[in-house]
Amino acid sequence: MGARSGSVLVVGVGGQGVVLSSAVAADAARRCGFDVKQSEVHGMSQRGGVVTSHLRYGDAVHSPLIAAGEADAIVALEWNEALRALPALRPGGTLIVSVERILPPSAFLDRLHGALRYPPIAVDLLRGTVPDVRACDATAVAARAGDRRAMNTVLLGVLSRVMPFSETAWDDAIVANVPPKALGANRAAFAAGRALQADDARRALARLARSDEGGDARRAAASLEIVDAWCKGEMCGICVRSCPEYCLGFDAEATAVRVTRADACTACGLCELLCPDFAIVVHPAVPA
């Protein structure tokens, strides 16, 4: 696109306010006399999934989608989504990111080892490939401005410094798109974001590092000792129903419990704890 044109990709997680942010930026572009197209996908993504919104502006815009490697700026409301969106950024483009970590249940699937499946938040490392990273803890900034939920508008404030839209256009767009009762907080959040000079993410990074201590303990599978003579089998079934890993079942006659998924046992000991007949003993594997 030419000089009087550009594109912004806004990304985040359902419920964070991606669509509203993009709508405000689109409205600001329109108020500056640009042709505008904006595209997002609704539907299943509302359910805690990834939300992306493409914004393109210029003298005349055709495609509502940004081609790979052509976004002038990415506004990421969440760290993992920032990394996912990176291929959209043009060389030399700006990545505006809140060091927000929203962990999806899919990050907790490795129960055997407790390894968290989430990319490390490493802003400095990212600067090696994306020189212009503007990271902040937008939620903390928004909280200081009056309402933590206005974190998306903090990032718009940061974005406003790299977009050719007038401050009046931004303010009018916020007034037109934000619900009246949240207007004050959003205006304050925008101003706070626009005023952010350097990175404001150090404290958040330290907090996230602390909260992620531990885990990833490599453990071998445990073994279960079941005393058949004491086990009531299907008459009871408490352990079969309560095993968090669905490791247990019954033998052919359903008179005693058997381990059916030994590999998945985390040695949590719940079966031993709940067995009314003391028929199960869990032996955690001894490290070699």
Binding site: G49, L86, P87, P91, P119
Partner: peptide, 18 residues
């Protein structure tokens, strides 16, 4: 083709029940 940014490994985020 422009040397596009590679995305580092990310966590999948499928839609969820609320």
């Amino acid at each position: 083709a422009p040397a596009a940014q590679q995305s580092p490994p990310t966590t999948p985020r499928p839609p969820l029940l609320c």
